[in-house]
Design a binder for these strands. Sequence first.
DNA 1: GTCCGGTCGGTGACTAGGTCACTGATCCGA
DNA 2: TCGGATCAGTGACCTAGTCACCGACCGGAC
Lengths: 222, 222
Amino acid sequence: MIRVPWIDRFDGLADLTPELRAELEARSAVVTLPQGRIAFAPGHSPENMLLLLSGTVRVYQVSEGGREIVLYRVESGESCVLTTACLLSHEDYAAEGVAESDVEAVAIPRSLFDDLLARSKTFRTFVFAAYSQRIVDLFRVIDQVAFGRIDIRLAERLTALARGRSEVRTTHQQLASELGTAREVVSRQLQEFQRRGWITQSRGAIGLADPGSLQHLAATPG
Amino acid sequence: MIRVPWIDRFDGLADLTPELRAELEARSAVVTLPQGRIAFAPGHSPENMLLLLSGTVRVYQVSEGGREIVLYRVESGESCVLTTACLLSHEDYAAEGVAESDVEAVAIPRSLFDDLLARSKTFRTFVFAAYSQRIVDLFRVIDQVAFGRIDIRLAERLTALARGRSEVRTTHQQLASELGTAREVVSRQLQEFQRRGWITQSRGAIGLADPGSLQHLAATPG
DNA sequence: GTCCGGTCGGTGACTAGGTCACTGATCCGA
DNA sequence: TCGGATCAGTGACCTAGTCACCGACCGGAC
């Protein structure tokens, strides 16, 4: 299924010595998660660090009241690195990760992770770079939730979810969970977008009639 | 000034081998930051990882519009660990850290940090446990900002800032910056607290007349 | 077919909280 | 004691979240 060595898909790992490369390949396993599978959840910390080869994992938080907010997505070529903090510290996690599509990933067991950390500066840099990335993501979420306008955030998210396509298959409720807001709020904002001719709506899908205007709104500061 | 070896103040480091202990003591330095000194800021990443011996560092984020929100505090006995991600990955930071009081800290230079990570499982566990802690803190902030009520958050923060004392010396604006909200909102909530007899107000200070009720409000879910 | 439960989306009324513009009070150094 | 700076109070207004309810639509079961 995979022809080129998977390590080459991760920039930060290209510089590993041949010896460690071989060990990493030998002691890790390529696993697949079917769409919808929970990768990790509170009270159920993962045994492995995952490096994604294909698909995406959505990491989100569920509040007491049952409301959700998406924290970030792990895309192919990235690692599910925040879970590593738990791998080594055995702490439980407040967030939940679910495979958004079928996912192919390399599973690095705890012992190998620790081993590589000890023996390879390249691997250490790889891990901490991934951390930086995620932490910056979390900072962005905090900034957006605390100070961002909902119409701008929605336009942004629609654009991101579209990935260049002209239709997003999702419900108002799912969009609300993305942004940590209520369905009614999303419905009303989408009506306004529709009124302006930027989108078309149908049950379970949103057509991006004018992606440019959405992107423009998404890019407006404040 | 410090009599017992500082390493003993950090639980996670007690198990270091004597050799590494000696090296850590030899290659690190105890530094002091005067109150108000910026420990790190965007575009000005720190050269050292700090382990706090006394005082606190407030880590906060400043939005485009100039509004602020406190992300967490580094207390004595804790480490400024999120900066280590930058130490090794050389990424720039979106948050800012300032010494809230005079701070005494151990500065661990980048090379020593990397060295210890390579050579000590104890140190690795220490670092990742600290990460876990902070990440969980950030998750909490996101949850509170997205779904929490402002009166509850304010009561909570007042209680925390008081640290058992019966007066908090702070301004409404500073409280607003703690919570990522507007001064007017804080003013109105404080008036309501005052009306209920929970606090007394004077310029630049808030007296906690009924800490129990504040704590009770802070503890109410949803 | 049509019945029916579940999901999806629309809507009006209301509340909480953030924004704006302005005011007076207090403090402190010149 | 004067004047600027900081701190706090206030009303009008707007945005977003909440609540309660409705109808549209979908996919089986019959």
